[in-house]
Design a protein around this nucleic acid. Structure first.
Lengths: 558, 558
DNA sequence: TCCTTTCCACCTAGGTGAAAACCT
DNA sequence: AGGTTTTCACCTAGGTGGAAAGGA
C-alpha cells in the first residue's frame, strides 16, 4: 500500500474511469453551466487584442515576425547547457549515457528549429479565418499540423507532442451579414486539457529530423467526457496549436534520486497562422470552399468545373436528351464509381465553381482576425527564474483563464527564453514553411513526470515526485505517413505521401544509436528492419542470438 | 572512427541501401539460381515427417499435444530464475530495477503463456492444408496470428516479435488431380530472414496481457529484394510462424560491462496448426472458399446463396428476360455500391453457392497434410547446455538448410526446455485457443543485441558485442485494433474489433508503472492519455511541468 | 506445364461537407 | 434564431481473389 500511496494519479484515473458513465448524465448540466456564462459583450468588429494579457502568455513563443514572414526563426537559448545534466547533478543520466559513448554529442548546443510545413495553405486559411470542425466523435484538423524539426541531437530520444491553447478568453459568433467573427462573451469554462503525443514518440533526434512530422491523426472534439483521447475544445472559441519537443532523458526511470535540475530551455513552438476558430458547422463559405478544394477526403464535394464528369454530370447530360430513363448496358455501371475518381467531379447542390479567392466571397477580413498584433509576436522574449520553462504556456494560460490558484505558478515558473530572428532558409521539401527554433537541452523535473517511459522495468524513485509512464504508445498510428497536403495549388488534388527523406525501407539510415553507437561483430550482425510504413523487423537469424556468417546487415527506420 | 569501427551493422546497412537499385537487375539471376536447384524428387503422396531431423528443430516448442487438443499448454521451465539476472551478474539490470522499487515483482517466477486466438479457424485451414498467398508487394496472412499472453511481469517491458520458420527443406507442388501436396524437390536457397516486431513494442507486460496481440499487419512477400520490411519467403514451401516474447532489460543500454549471462529461458512460441504453404495463387479450392468465407476483405467474392441480391444477381435476373440490355432508371445507380454492402452478394464468375464444407469441394484431404505427426508434437521436450536458448530455432534451422558453418551454433547453443501439458482453461474472449507457456526471465546476450532501445541517449558498452537499436518503432500501425477474425462461423461476417479487456479510453488502467509505481502529488498530477486506438495524450496542463490543482487525473493505455 | 505477375471489381474502414433533424 | 447532432453520399486508402497475361 505504500507503493499505492505514491500513485494518486492512477487511482484517480481509475476512479474517473469508473465514473464516466455516471457523468454522462451530467453532460447537460455542464452545457447549461457553460451557457450560463455566455454573455453577449456586444459585437466587436475586429477581434482586437483586447485579450493581450490573457492571450499573450500562450503566444510568447510564437514567431516573432509578422505572419507574412514565412521563414522566420525564433531562437531561444537557455543558460544551462545539457552537460550540466550529466553525472552527479542528474545521476539518472549516468547509466544512460555511458562513459564509453562519447558524451561530446552536442546535445547541449543544439539549436532546435521547427518548421511548419504547408505554411502557405495555413496562411490561405488564416487570411480568411481558419475554422475547424469539432464533433462529438472527434474530427481531424485540416490542414493538419505538419512540422520539420532540425537541430536535435541525433542520438537523443525525444517525444514530440502537440497541445492546443486558447488564444484568448472570449467566445465568438459569426455574423453572416457582415461575414465577420465577433466577440460573443467570455470563454466557457476550461475543458480537460489534453496533449497529443506523436505516436512515433519516443524516437531519436535523427529519426525525427529525417521526416516530416505530421499530426494528421489528431482529432478535436467538443465532448468534454471524451474517452477516445481526443483533444477537447469549446466550440466558437479561438485556439492555437503548439508543438513540444521533449527530451527523453532516460534518467527519470533510472535514477533513484533525482534532484530538481536547473532550467534547460523552453521547447514549445507555435505558429500564428495556425490559429483557428472551432465550429460545429462551417460559418464562412470561403473556408468551406478551401477545405473542399484542398482536403482529399472532401473531393466528393469539389465542383471546380473541369473534369466534371461524375454521376450527376452524367445524369444531367443524359437527362438533357432523355429526361428520366435511358437504356444502359451494364458496361456502364462498373465505370460509375471510377468516374468520380478523377481530379474532380460535380455535385448539383454545390455552389457553382468559384475559387476561394473570388471577390464574391472575400469578405474583406482580417489578417488580424485572430487577435494577434505584431506586438504579440515580439513579446516572446522573456527571462525570469530558473524553475520551469513552461511558465507562460498552458499552465499559465489556464490559470489566468480560470482564475485558479495556479496563477502563482506563472510567477515562480518563468522561462529562460531568448529570441532572435534569423533569415528564411528553411524551404525544406520545396514547401513554404514557418519555422521556430530554440535551444533545448535537458528537461525540467516536471517534464519528467509526464514523460512516458518504455523502459519501466526496474523503475525506481527515492523521491515522491518522480514517476514514469510506460508503454504509452500502444496502438500508435502511422501518422508520419498521412497525406502530404500540398500547399501548392497545382498539387492540391494529388496528395502525396509524407515520405522519409531517405525513401525506401532499406534506403535510409537507422535510428539513433544504430548509426554510430552499435557495437556488433559481423557474425552477430543485427538486422533491425523497420518498415517504411508499417512493420518492424529484425533479422530473424539474430533472434536466437545467432546470425549466420552470411547475414545481410540491413537496418532501417525510414 | 573508433566509434564507427564498432558499427559494422550500420555501415553495412547503408552500403546495402545504396545498392538496392543496383541489385534490382540481379533479381532475375537470383530467380534463375533458385530454379536451378529445383529438382523433382518424385511425388510423395503424404507429406511425411521425412523432415523430422530438419524440421523438428523448429518445432520443438510446439504444442505437445495432438492438433485436435485445443487448449493444451506447453510449459517450459528454465533453470535460471530471473533473480540471477539482478545486480552483479547482469549489472545492466541494476540501474533499471531501482532498489526502491520493490524487486519482489515476480518476474523471475513468471510462467509466460501464449494462447493462440482463433485457433479453431486455424485448425479448419490446417485440416485442409493452409495456403498463404505471397506477392511481390506483400500480402497479409489470413488468418492472422493473434495471441493472448499471460504470465508476464506487469512492470517489465517486453518486445513481442514474430518470425516464420521453414518447416522442412523441401519444395512442394500441388497435384490437382489428387488434390494433394507433394514434395517437388529440395528447398530453395534461404532468403534473408526477417522478424516482424509487433509495432506496439516495447510495452509493459501489463499492456501486452491486457489485449489480444494481433499480427495482422504483417506481410509476406516473395521478393527477396523487398525493401518494405516484409517477411520474405519462398513460394511452394512450408513455413510456421513463431512468436517471441523478449524482455526489454534496460541494462543493455546502461551497463558498460556485460558479461555473458546464464540462460534464462526460452521465449519462442509456435503452434502447429499455423503451418502453411506459400503460394502465389491458391491451389486448393477449399482454401479459397474458406478464405473468402472468413476474410472480410474477400466479402466481395462470397456466394453463400443467402442475400444474393448484388449487381450480378440483378444482372442475371434481368438478363433472364432481357438478355443484354435493360432499361434502368438512374435511381438504380446510386444503389449499386450499396447493394454489395450486405452480408453477401453474388458474382456470376463465382461458382454457384456452395459452402466451404460442401462435399462437392471436399477433396478428402489431409489432416496430416503439413507433415506433422503426433510424434512431432511430443518431441518438444529437450534439455541441453545453458548458453543459448534459441538453439533449435532459426539459426539452427538455417544452418542446417544452408549447410553453413553455423551448424556448430546449434551444438553450443542448446536450450533449457522442459515441457508439460496442462488442461484447457484458456478460452479467453470465448474463442478457442491454443496456448504455449514457459518461464522467461532474463535474456541472453545475443538477444540483447537485437533489442531496440528507445532510450538510446547515453548508450554505452565496454564490450564489442553489445549494441542497442533505438526508436525502431516509427510508423507503427495500430495492429492491435485490426479485425478480430472470428473463429465462429456465425460471426464470420461480422468482424469485431480486438479490444482491450478494459474497454474505453478512460476505462482501463494505464500501462506498467502507471498503476502502482508513479509517485505524483496531486498538484503535479500527470495525465497520460493514450487513445483507445490512435492517440496519446498528456494532460496539457502538465506539459509545462505544472498542473492545476483541479487537474483531472486520468491515464489510459487502450 | 507450371508458376508468377498484373490488373480489376469488390470489399472494409474511415475521413469529408451537406442537409435535415434536433435542441435550447 | 443560433448552435449541435445525426445521417448520408462521396471520397481516400487499401485488403481480397479472379482472370488474363507473362515467363521459363
Amino acid at each position: 500500500m505504500a507503493e499505492k500511496r505514491r500513485s494518486p494519479c492512477t487511482m484517480s484515473l481509475k476512479a474517473h474511469a469508473f465514473s464516466v458513465e455516471a457523468l454522462i448524465g451530467a453532460e447537460k448540466q455542464q452545457q447549461q453551466k457553460k451557457k450560463r456564462k455566455r454573455v453577449e459583450d456586444g459585437a466587436v468588429e475586429r477581434v482586437a487584442p483586447a485579450d493581450g494579457t490573457d492571450g499573450a502568455s500562450s503566444l510568447h513563443l510564437q514567431q516573432p515576425g509578422p505572419p507574412e514572414l514565412e521563414h522566420s526563426v525564433c531562437s531561444i537559448l537557455t543558460s544551462s547547457p545539457c552537460e550540466d545534466t550529466y553525472g552527479v547533478v542528474k545521476p539518472g543520466n549516468g547509466p544512460c549515457r555511458s562513459p564509453i559513448t562519447p558524451p561530446a554529442v552536442p546535445s547541449q548546443t543544439t539549436l532546435v528549429r521547427v518548421d511548419l510545413q504547408g505554411a502557405e495553405l495555413w496562411k490561405r486559411f488564416h487570411e480568411i479565418g481558419t475554422e475547424m470542425i469539432i464533433t462529438k466523435a472527434g474530427r481531424r484538423m485540416f490542414p493538419a499540423m505538419r512540422v520539420k524539426i532540425t537541430g536535435l541531437d541525433p542520438h537523443q530520444q525525444y517525444y514530440i507532442a502537440m497541445d492546443i491553447l486558447p488564444v484568448d478568453n472570449k467566445r465568438y459568433r459569426y455574423v453572416y451579414h457582415s461575414s465577420k467573427w465577433m466577440v460573443a462573451g467570455n470563454a466557457d469554462s476550461p475543458v480537460p486539457p489534453r496533449v497529443y503525443i506523436h505516436p512515433d514518440s519516443p524516437a531519436s533526434g535523427e529519426t525525427w529530423m529525417r521526416q516530416v512530422i505530421s499530426f494528421d491523426k489528431l482529432k478535436l472534439t467538443n465532448n468534454e467526457l471524451d474517452d477516445q483521447g481526443h483533444i477537447i475544445l469549446h466550440s466558437m472559441h479561438k485556439y492555437q496549436p503548439r508543438v513540444h519537443v521533449i527530451r527523453k532523458d532516460c534518467g527519470e526511470e533510472l535514477s533513484p534520486v533525482k534532484p530538481i535540475p536547473v532550467v534547460e530551455g523552453e521547447k514549445a513552438f507555435s505558429f500564428p497562422e495556425t490559429i483557428f476558430t472551432t465550429v460545429t458547422a462551417y460559418q464562412n463559405q470561403q473556408i468551406t470552399r478551401l477545405k473542399i478544394d484542398r482536403n482529399p477526403f472532401a473531393k466528393g464535394f469539389r465542383d471546380s468545373g473541369r473534369n466534371r464528369m461524375g454521376l450527376e454530370a452524367l445524369v444531367e447530360s443524359y437527362a438533357f436528351w432523355r429526361p428520366s430513363l435511358r437504356t444502359l448496358t451494364f458496361e456502364d455501371i462498373p465505370g460509375i464509381p471510377k468516374q468520380g475518381s478523377g481530379p474532380a467531379n460535380s455535385h448539383a447542390h454545390m455552389l457553382p465553381g468559384s475559387p476561394c479567392s473570388s471577390p464574391a466571397f472575400h469578405i474583406g477580413a482580417n489578417s488580424q482576425l485572430c487577435g494577434l498584433t505584431p506586438a504579440d509576436y515580439s513579446a516572446c522574449g522573456r527571462s525570469s527564474l530558473a524553475l520551469n520553462r513552461y511558465s507562460t504556456t498552458l499552465a499559465e494560460t489556464y490559470s489566468r483563464l480560470t482564475n485558479s490558484t495556479s496563477e502563482s505558478f506563472a510567477q515562480r515558473t518563468p522561462s529562460y527564453v531568448g529570441m532572435s530572428m534569423n533569415g528564411n532558409d528553411n524551404d525544406t521539401f520545396g514547401c513554404p514553411q514557418t519555422s521556430l527554433s530554440m535551444q533545448i537541452s535537458g528537461m525540467s523535473p516536471q517534464l519528467q513526470y509526464i514523460m512516458p517511459s518504455p523502459t519501466s522495468n526496474g523503475f525506481s524513485s527515492s523521491q515522491p515526485h518522480q514517476s514514469s509512464y510506460n508503454a504509452f504508445r500502444l496502438h500508435s498510428p502511422c501518422a508520419l505517413y498521412g497525406y502530404n497536403f500540398s500547399t501548392s495549388p497545382k498539387l492540391a488534388s494529388s496528395p502525396e505521401r509524407v515520405l522519409s527523406s531517405q525513401g525506401s525501407f532499406l534506403g535510409s539510415s537507422p535510428s539513433g544509436t544504430m548509426t554510430d553507437r552499435q557495437i556488433l561483430p559481423p557474425v552477430e550482425g543485427v538486422h533491425l528492419l523497420s518498415s517504411a510504413g508499417q512493420q518492424h523487423f529484425f533479422d530473424s537469424r539474430s533472434l536466437g542470438g545467432l546470425t549466420l556468417p552470411s547475414s545481410q546487415v540491413s537496418a532501417h527506420m525510414v
